[in-house]
């Protein structure tokens, strides 16, 4: 499913630690249109908890949060 999702913005969050992965997603979410998707790749395991929590609090949607080859890949959809 994720492979077919259209990505509007790629975000490289590798090497960043708390709170920056979440902050960068939040700073960039308005750079995609409503309904648009950010694909973010992080190396901080804490982002697996933080980015979904950020999405829940801000009313956005995490389509995917998965570990792939030691990295954490997120698809975040801008809902509003």
């Amino acid at each position: 499913m994720s492979d077919e999702t259209k990505v509007d913005l790629e975000l490289d969050l590798k090497g960043l630690l708390c709170p920056l992965p979440m902050v960068k997603v939040s700073q960039n979410i308005t750079n995609v249109p409503v309904g648009g998707v950010i694909r973010a790749v992080a190396t901080d395991p804490g982002a697996m908890a933080d980015i979904p929590a950020w999405a829940k609090s801000t009313g956005n949607e995490v389509l995917k949060a998965e570990k792939e080859d030691g990295e954490f890949v997120f698809l975040v959809k801008r809902v509003k």
Binding site: C18, P19, M22, V23, V25, S26, Q27, D50, A53, W54, S57, T58
Partner: peptide, 11 residues
């Protein structure tokens, strides 16, 4: 500052 920036990011 981690809590403050995190909270600001969460809107």
């Amino acid at each position: 500052f981690i809590i403050a920036t995190g909270a600001a990011a969460m809107g």
